[in-house]
Design a protein around this nucleic acid. Sequence first.
DNA 1: CTTGACACCTAGCGTGTCTATGCCTAGGTT
DNA 2: AACCTAGGCATAGACACGCTAGGTGTCAAG
Lengths: 110, 110
Amino acid sequence: MDLRGHLDLLLLATLHQRGPAHGYALITALRETSGGTFDLPEGTVYPALHRLERDGLVTGFWEEGTPRRRRSYELTPQGRAALQRKNREWREFAKAVQMIVGRAHPEPTG
Amino acid sequence: MDLRGHLDLLLLATLHQRGPAHGYALITALRETSGGTFDLPEGTVYPALHRLERDGLVTGFWEEGTPRRRRSYELTPQGRAALQRKNREWREFAKAVQMIVGRAHPEPTG
DNA sequence: CTTGACACCTAGCGTGTCTATGCCTAGGTT
DNA sequence: AACCTAGGCATAGACACGCTAGGTGTCAAG
């Protein structure tokens, strides 16, 4: 596991910042923005986008006038609301983990 | 999903700070240290401890002289090493998410 | 004798992510 | 021509993890 259930947050946040984008572009954007930490396989991203569309958080449309067929997605109002919520949840989660982890560190030599 | 694959880190970190502890005590400790954010069901913690023991990251022993039977666990050297590694992974992960999420926030009213 | 805190355990489910694979187009190389 | 690489989408299946839901039992207080 690598994404730990935060994939939706990452996708929604990226769509929010960059505007409508297609799957492959999202993969690239996440890889670059995260400094290489998130290098997501397609089998992760495409099903996730389908899920988000099914749940009404994004809407997809086939782009016209591009050489290759590509399906782009943009945030819906519910998507924006979900992003806000997931953002809050992330901050609370990260803070809580930090509270537990952030005090002492194990000694390198045990 | 709530713990997002970071349960092991939380357990190992708590054991590292408090020394040997039993399952129920870990649940209480995590709840209090996290300010209530992590209120883990027993069905989450006990199987996780079994997993950690199976993998050699903790060793369990039945405490003697306590009114109720309780199985306590303490970190092994591998456990300490794993804690270090998971700690690093957490920091990298949190940083990467922050890079993606941390710039803009959706407007409250859309 | 019932309630509630303490303390442990497990089967089975749902969900999410990844692996693996497939299909197709465009552009470049040999 | 044949081949390769990058771009682009898609799904099936496996796996890991956490949670639900149930169980066992002790001890103290009402």
